[in-house]
């Protein structure tokens, strides 16, 4: 591990010019990078053009006179079905869903992971195996009975319902994340706390959680992007008044009557992508750690 990375290559003077294979390497990386950036670029320039320019020009051209009209329309005037209030309502719905869902799912996941790792209560192993299986199963298997149960309990089409659903389906990843973290801590730490007379909750809140801050950050990143990007659960469980932004976005784009307003569509799309993009670019390497840790490794 401590061997310098350079040792992989022969030592000696650096070749002065780039070798052909090196040029090929950079060319491939550059072309692929451009391919990956194209959709973002196209969305951005389209959202800044008026419709007349979109019809006449081509999708790659820069806007002649950039305008934010499409953005304000998308935010506050675009129509979904009969109402024309833009997707701002969806944005606030997503926030209202996001905040409690992230908090509750992480709390439940952290508690479950902690209980599983140090205390090994009865049934923990079986439960863990069940959680790991569920992580792979498509929602379609659970969705109809869940709708029935929720309407029996009276939380169908409500904020409480969608928060519970995000907690239920976030549980496998959150438990795995925290269980793996706690399992990596030295057992002596736990034993010392036990000898000092600390109980289950005290060890959890005063010793384990303060040490789990990095993993909690990873959990927040995973859940914020995951819940913000969710479409199917919001569609089925949130109810008409709480539809999240992704669902509203799809409605905006699909209920345009007459001519499609591509600039408004793209502005709305970018607005919806803004939160996960910010999380991604602000968190940087943490995001990668998050998906690596969430990439279920039993």
């Amino acid at each position: 591990m401590s061997t310098p990375r350079a040792s992989r290559h022969p030592s000696g003077r650096r070749p002065k010019r780039l070798s052909p294979s090196r040029v090929g390497l950079y060319a491939f990386l550059l072309i692929t990078a451009l391919f990956f950036l194209t959709p973002l670029y196209v969305m951005l320039v389209t959202s800044l053009k008026p419709m007349a320019e979109i019809r006449l020009g081509n999708i790659m051209s820069l806007p002649a006179a950039p305008t934010l009209d499409a953005w304000t329309t998308a935010w506050s005037r675009a129509c979904t079905g009969l109402s024309c209030n833009g997707i701002s309502a969806g944005f606030w719905n997503s926030i209202r869903i996001l905040v409690p869902s992230v908090i509750v799912s992480i709390m439940v996941g952290a508690t479950t992971g902690y209980a599983m790792s140090f205390w090994r209560p009865r049934g923990a192993k079986l439960l863990f195996a069940a959680l790991m299986v569920v992580a792979f199963i498509p929602y379609q298997v659970f969705i109809y009975p869940l709708v029935r149960i929720f309407s029996q309990v009276g939380i169908a089409n409500s904020l409480a319902g969608i928060v519970l659903v995000h907690t239920v389906f976030g549980l496998p990843t959150m438990t795995l994340l925290f269980r793996n973290h706690f399992a990596s801590l030295p057992l002596e730490l736990f034993k010392a706390a036990r000898v000092d007379g600390a109980g289950f909750w005290r060890i959890f809140l005063q010793i384990m959680m303060p040490m789990a801050v990095p993993i909690a950050v990873v959990a927040v990143i995973l859940q914020v992007t995951g819940i913000w990007n969710d479409f199917i659960l919001g569609l089925v469980f949130a109810g008409r008044d709480n539809l999240p932004m992704t669902v509203q976005l799809n409605n905006v784009v699909n209920t345009t009557q007459g001519e499609r307003t591509y600039n408004v569509d793209m502005a709305a799309t970018l607005l919806t992508a803004l939160v996960p993009l910010c999380v991604y670019f602000v968190s940087g390497r943490w995001f990668v750690r998050g998906i690596a840790a969430g990439a279920v490794k039993g």
Partner: peptide, 14 residues
């Protein structure tokens, strides 16, 4: 990696 942070709805519409 940035596309992976965005939803399938955004991906699909783009």
């Amino acid at each position: 990696l940035y596309p992976f942070s965005m939803s399938f709805i955004v991906t699909g519409l783009a």
